[in-house]
């Protein structure tokens, strides 16, 4: 008993190109079927003829300069992509994200400026009493006295006046 012709189709397709593409068991199976089936023999001949015709078709490829035109479009695309990355930055979103960073920077600058003012020997009378914390000239005992007696809103100048 031979295989149904439909089941042989896959073998015919490959055998039309090269019978040795098929495993030996399939070659044997195909051979057995073809020995009894003239329509499949004819189908195999047709498959081979059409494939030979297609394979023989000359390759007519791209025209001169095609690759240059393609790459010009590719480079324009790449350039456009890099520009849009910058344009795509959401300024508002980034402004909100940077506010805490800016505030921290401002505080740092204020503290540094105060420290430098205290250390530079500049007129300290107008400085708030809290600036004594950053002064290298204030002894520990003086600092303690200051903390215990001074009003938060006082300046150093006023505090000194008030002291006996």
């Amino acid at each position: 008993m031979t295989d149904n012709c439909t089941a042989i189709t896959a073998l015919l397709v490959r055998a039309a190109e090269d019978e040795h593409m098929l495993p030996a068991v399939d070659r044997a199976r195909l051979g057995t079927h073809l020995s009894d089936c003239s329509s499949c023999r004819e189908a195999l001949a047709d498959q081979r003829a059409v494939r030979a015709r297609l394979v023989a078709e000359p390759v007519v490829g791209a025209s001169l300069g095609f690759d240059r035109r393609v790459m010009a479009a590719i480079r324009a695309e790449a350039e456009s992509r890099s520009r849009s990355w910058l344009d795509g930055l959401d300024v508002r979103q980034w402004t909100w994200r940077l506010v805490p960073v800016a505030a921290a920077l401002a505080l740092t600058v204020a503290v540094v400026a105060q420290t430098e003012a205290v250390g530079s020997g500049a007129d300290t009378d107008t400085l708030p009493v809290s600036s004594a914390l950053f002064s290298e000239d204030v002894s520990e005992s003086s600092l303690l006295s200051l903390m215990l007696s001074a009003n938060v809103d006082d300046t150093l100048g006023n505090h000194r006046k008030d002291q006996p």
Partner: peptide, 20 residues
């Protein structure tokens, strides 16, 4: 893959009539 084989078979068979 079975569909590939089937389409190739049918396509070649249809072409045969026109090309031969």
């Amino acid at each position: 893959m079975g569909t590939v084989e089937s389409r190739i078979f049918r396509g070649r068979q249809r072409l045969k009539a026109a090309l031969m």
